[in-house]
């Protein structure tokens, strides 16, 4: 059951990266206890989910991956995570999540999403009583982490 809830998000990420960025993707499901932390600078996008599956999904993009994604889309070089880049990234997370809602509806789950929020750090986030599922979406320009947190 738990893997089934995350699959619509990883499938949507795979489909979106392929269509928008011409990137092939493989996905690894990650055990909750396994650490995903490394030393790379990352940008987190959190999208709240409402409805049958109340919770949130967080996408964690390495800085280098983010800059390369915006370069692929625009054909221009980007060197810093600024308002333009954060907004483009937020829209990509929004698109993935919107497509994931369609996947969830095929599992008879009716959900909606709120606008994306950029987060600098999730340390100290209260996860007590929550179920967390994680996946790593691997691409040629870096790995994107997906964290799905749902109410207990």
């Amino acid at each position: 059951m738990s893997k089934d809830l995350l699959a619509p998000f990883s499938n949507a990420a795979s489909q979106t990266f392929k269509l928008m960025l011409d990137l092939d993707v493989t996905t690894d499901m990650v055990e909750t206890s396994e650490s995903l932390h490394d030393n790379k600078e990352k940008i987190g996008i959190v999208i709240e989910i409402t409805g049958d599956l109340a919770g949130e999904v967080m996408y964690s993009f390495p800085k280098d991956t983010t800059l390369e994604m915006v370069k692929i889309m625009s054909g221009m070089e980007f060197s810093e995570i600024d308002e333009f880049v954060k907004s483009a990234l937020g829209e990509i997370a929004n698109i993935i999540s919107g497509n994931a809602m369609t996947g969830l509806s095929q599992n008879q789950l009716s959900c909606d999403i709120r606008p994306p929020q950029i987060v600098e750090s999730r340390e100290g986030a209260n996860t007590e009583g929550c179920s967390i599922q994680r996946a790593k979406v691997k691409t040629a320009i870096g790995d994107v982490e997906l964290n799905l947190r749902t109410g207990s």
Binding site: M20, M73, D82, E83, F84, V85, S87, A88, L89, I92
Partner: peptide
Amino acid sequence: QQFGGRLLA
């Protein structure tokens, strides 16, 4: 800048 990034994607 925010508008441009979102519009692009």
